[in-house]
C-alpha cells in the first residue's frame, strides 16, 4: 500500500490535494484505516469498493463534512494546496467554498432554480445582479442544464426531473468556482439516460481543469469517466492506480475477486 502511494505521489505532476494517513473513527470504532492518496487537477478519480468499505467516509473527510457528525474523529493530514486542512483552526466555510460536494440523492433547496445557484454566491459576497445572472448562466451551462431551464429560472427546483435536479446541484457547486468537486454516488438515484448526462458533465468539468473525486458503485461508470481509481475494502485503501491498470491488471487478490463479482 505504501509502495503504491509513493509511486503515484512521484508520478503526480500537480497534486491539488493529497491525504496522508487519514483515519476515521466513529465514537471510538475505526471506520477507515490510514489512507494516503493524491488527486490532480483536471483528472477524475473514482473510489470503488463494496458497501461499507469506507469510500464515502473518506470522501466526506476531504471537505471536513465528517465534522458535522457528532462523535466522528478524523486523523492524519488532508493537504489542500500545501495546507493541512485537518486542523482545528481551519476555516471550514472557506474550504467548502473551494472544495465542492455533490450528494447521492439530488438535494436542491426548496427555492427557485435561479436561487438554488445564486443563493450560496450571495452568501459568499456576490451582490451585483448582473454578476449573479452571468455566473448562474455560466454554471448552468457548465452543468449542461442551461438550455433546459433558461425559460423557467423562477420555477421551483422541485419541478425538475431527478437527473435535472442533480445537474442543478452540480451547477450550484460549480458556481462557487471550486478547484475540487467531490461526488458521492451522484447517479445512484438516476435512470440510465440521466446518468449518461451526468457522466458527460463530469468529463467536461474535468476538462476545465477541476479535480473530480467520485464515489461509485458502478464499475462501468468508473471505467467510463475516471483516469485514476482507488479500491477500498473493509476500511482499507487497498489499491490505487490508473483506471486502465486497476480494471485491466489488478494486483491485489481482493480487488481481483471484487471485479470478478465474488463479493460486493
Amino acid at each position: 500500500m505504501t509502495d503504491t502511494t509513493k509511486l503515484t505521489s512521484s508520478t503526480v505532476q500537480n497534486p491539488v490535494l493529497h491525504t496522508h494517513d487519514v483515519t476515521v473513527d466513529y465514537s471510538g470504532k475505526r471506520a477507515l484505516n490510514e489512507t494516503s492518496l493524491s488527486f490532480e487537477s483536471g483528472t477524475v478519480t473514482a473510489l470503488i469498493g463494496p458497501s461499507g468499505c469506507g469510500k464515502s467516509t473518506f470522501l466526506r473527510c476531504i471537505n471536513l463534512m465528517n465534522r458535522e457528525i457528532p462523535g466522528c474523529v478524523v486523523g492524519g493530514k488532508i493537504v489542500y494546496h500545501d495546507i493541512n486542512v485537518n486542523t482545528k483552526g481551519i476555516d471550514t466555510l472557506w474550504l467548502r467554498k473551494r472544495v465542492g460536494m455533490v450528494f447521492q440523492q439530488p438535494n436542491p433547496f426548496r427555492k427557485s432554480i435561479y436561487e438554488n445557484v445564486a443563493f450560496a454566491l450571495k452568501s459568499h459576497g456576490m451582490t451585483k445582479k448582473e454578476e449573479l445572472d452571468e455566473r448562474v448562466e455560466k454554471s448552468l451551462r457548465a452543468a449542461a442544464l442551461w438550455d433546459e431551464v433558461k425559460d423557467k429560472l423562477r420555477d421551483s427546483a422541485y419541478a425538475l426531473s431527478g437527473g435535472q435536479q442533480q445537474r442543478l446541484c452540480i451547477a450550484r457547486t460549480l458556481a462557487l468556482q471550486p478547484d475540487v468537486v467531490l461526488m458521492d454516488e451522484p447517479c445512484s438515484a438516476l435512470d440510465p439516460i440521466a446518468t449518461f448526462a451526468i457522466e458527460e458533465t463530469i468529463s467536461s468539468i474535468a476538462r476545465n481543469g477541476i479535480c473530480v473525486v467520485i464515489v461509485t458503485h458502478n464499475m462501468e461508470q468508473a471505467t467510463r469517466v475516471s483516469n485514476k481509481t482507488a479500491f477500498f475494502y473493509l476500511g482499507h485503501m487497498v489499491e490505487f492506480g490508473d483506471t486502465a491498470q486497476i480494471f485491466g491488471a489488478p494486483k491485489d487478490q481482493r480487488l481481483n475477486d471484487y471485479l470478478n463479482g465474488r463479493f460486493g
Binding site: 494546496h81 486542523t87 476555516d91 466555510l93 472557506w94
Partner: peptide, 19 residues
Amino acid sequence: EKTVSNKSESTAEVVGVSP
C-alpha cells in the same frame, strides 16, 4: 501551515478565512 504555503506558493488567495 499558512505561512509556509504563502512562501512556497504564489497563490495567496488559496489560503483564506471566510469573512
